[in-house]
Amino acid sequence: MRIEIVTPDKKIFEGDIKSVRVPGKKGSFQVLKDHAPIVSTLETGSVILVDPDGKETIFEIEGGVIEVKANKIILLADSVR
């Protein structure tokens, strides 16, 4: 599963991951492999990536949108701290 995290200023992250947890508007949710296509707006909070070796990476974002389609995730964040 591939994820791209971009802000208007730069690309923050691109790579393969096992799962990602994002702060959705209606509550935080996790995306695993073969997730149904979804578009959701995001709140301020942490995005937790788990890479194939099980290592966690955390980004703090301030609002954004996520699109998941065919194991490709695109996360547009307003800004990343």
Partner: peptide
């Protein structure tokens, strides 16, 4: 067109 789940 993809059948997306939209949230909210």
């Amino acid at each position: 067109p993809v059948d997306y789940i939209y949230e909210p």
